[in-house]
């Protein structure tokens, strides 16, 4: 029982990081029906911003997090502006390949400056409590709390504000909504800013939890988070959260009860099986094709 509780806690920690990244994928997909394959690398850049802030500016946790969020959001908006916007009317695949290119560029550009894995200085002193055999660290609590706060904030923005309404409207119909006076480009920029800053948050939290970072760290984590977004139902914000947590739970449970090398295998296998039974994801709905 204690192991189970312990693992659940670990699963929540990992799951909240996946969920934060999955949100970025799903938001961009919802609004542009485009897979932003550079998103995993923006997560990596987020971790590096935090590292830079902590190492060279000696910033504490909160300012490092903010630096990372603002920096990555600016980068994300710039990437959309320069690389994705001109391709909005091009074949969909061109935009996806461009995103792949941007991702590789970010990885290798970072690699030029940091060819070796970097260790992130301790931003917060780790405190460990032991409650009935379950060890809980303040970092774990922090990660889960920050992630959940961010998700609540996002949900409020999307459901309650005017910008959120515009975002939902655009994801429903991109051709009509601009005719009603919604500034399409601005809303898309805001979506990128929000999505990528959530990715940056995930990067920062990841860097705190696993303080050795390298330029390629975003690839596997990013792809996994993307799959989580699809399992939840791509384009669906709450689905992305659910998908992220499911992935976290599966990975931790596999690692706890099986040899750790089976982790990816089982995680992907479970996700595939889920997709076979719910081809449009857990919360996704098929849009019927008109004949």
């Amino acid at each position: 029982m204690t192991t189970f509780l312990q693992q659940t806690l670990n699963a929540l920690q990992l799951g909240s990081i996946y969920a934060l990244i999955a949100l970025g994928y799903t938001m961009v997909y919802g609004i542009l029906t485009m897979i932003n394959f550079a998103h995993g690398d923006l997560f990596m850049i987020g971790a590096f911003f935090c590292f830079l802030g902590a190492t060279f500016l000696n910033l504490p946790f909160i300012p490092s997090l903010l630096l990372s969020m603002v920096g990555v959001a600016m980068l994300g908006v710039t990437i959309e502006r320069v690389a994705y916007r001109p391709l909005r009317s091009a074949p969909r695949v061109s935009a996806i390949i461009t995103a792949l290119g941007v991702g590789i560029f970010l990885e290798n550009f970072t690699l030029v400056f940091f060819p070796y894995p970097q260790s992130v200085p301790t931003l917060l002193k780790t405190v460990i409590w032991n409650i009935g055999g379950v060890t809980i660290s303040n970092l774990q609590i922090l990660i889960i709390v920050v992630a959940i706060l961010m998700m609540i904030m996002l949900d409020v923005i999307v459901q309650k504000t005017k910008v959120g309404m515009a975002m939902r409207a655009i994801s429903w119909d991109k051709s009509v909504v601009p005719l009603m006076g919604v500034p399409l480009d601005l809303i898309i920029s805001i979506t990128f800013a929000l999505g990528t800053s959530l990715g940056a948050t995930a990067g920062t939290l990841y860097a705190i939890a696993f303080p050795v970072i390298d330029p390629y760290m975003g690839i596997l984590v990013g792809w996994k988070a993307f799959i989580a977004a699809v399992v939840g139902g791509i384009g669906n914000i709450r689905g992305a959260m659910i998908g992220g947590f499911i992935l976290g739970i599966v990975e931790i449970m596999v690692a706890a009860f099986m040899p750790s090398t089976y982790r990816d295998f089982v995680a992907f296998g479970v996700l595939l099986i889920l997709l076979i039974f719910r081809p449009y994801g857990i919360l996704g709905k098929p849009r019927p094709q008109k004949v």
Binding site: I35, F226, I227, P259, Y262, F265, G269, L271, L272
Partner: peptide, 28 residues
């Protein structure tokens, strides 16, 4: 076989997962 029912982004996931699974199986 999955391509009978799923298309586009969902099929992309299937092939992506396939790549990762192959790698993982070999590792084991």
């Amino acid at each position: 076989i999955p391509s009978f029912k799923t298309r586009g982004d969902y099929l992309a996931i299937v092939t992506l997962a396939f790549n990762m699974i192959v790698k993982s199986v070999i590792e084991n």
